[in-house]
């Protein structure tokens, strides 16, 4: 028994089987814990809170916009548009690679890879794969307009505000 303990070559078949079994269990446990460790570390790297600008923000009272006005909010990268009594918020982030598009007479142009959008945010030219996002705009209790960048709406969705 003692020799078998020290020298695997002298192990009996029964001992050998047991050894193999224990080796496999040990190896499995090690691989499993290493894998779990790796996955936990990956989850650790994914932030649960972000420190960036908030996704909901207020853009002032409807009176502040003249009819037909397009007001750019650079920090939020959103343009707020008024048509008659209707309001909409359109993203200024190019859907291609995240550059900020510039409003032009015909719509929006991306300075990075030459994508062009019409005034509704639909792709006219360039590599952009989809239209600019439209965000939900709502009226807060105090009458101010509030844009929520978490909530996308169909293009052409306007909020009607009774004067």
């Amino acid at each position: 028994m003692t020799t078998a303990n020290l020298n695997p070559e002298r192990a009996t078949e029964a001992v050998e089987g047991r050894r193999t079994f224990i080796s496999w269990i040990t190896a499995g446990a090690l691989v499993l814990s290493a894998g779990l460790m790796g996955i936990f570390n990956l989850i650790f790297l994914r932030p649960r809170v972000t420190y960036g600008p908030p996704s909901k923000f207020r853009v002032g009272k409807p009176d502040g916009y003249s009819s037909g006005a397009e007001v750019v909010f650079p920090a939020a990268r959103v343009v707020v548009r008024r048509r008659g009594d209707e309001f909409a918020a359109i993203s200024l982030v190019c859907t291609h690679l995240g550059c900020v598009v510039n409003p032009t007479d015909s719509g929006f142009d991306c300075p990075c890879h030459g994508s062009k959008y019409d005034s509704a945010g639909n792709v006219v030219a360039g590599p952009a794969p989809k239209r600019l996002s439209w965000y939900r705009i709502a009226q807060a209790p105090n009458g101010e307009l509030e844009v929520d960048k978490r909530k996308e709406v169909d293009s052409g969705t306007y909020l009607e505000v009774k004067a």
Partner: peptide
């Protein structure tokens, strides 16, 4: 999208 989020620590290029 997940890769970009983890790489940037958020949705956009900022302090994180």
């Amino acid at each position: 999208d997940e890769l970009r989020y983890v790489l940037l620590g958020g949705d956009s290029v900022g302090a994180e």
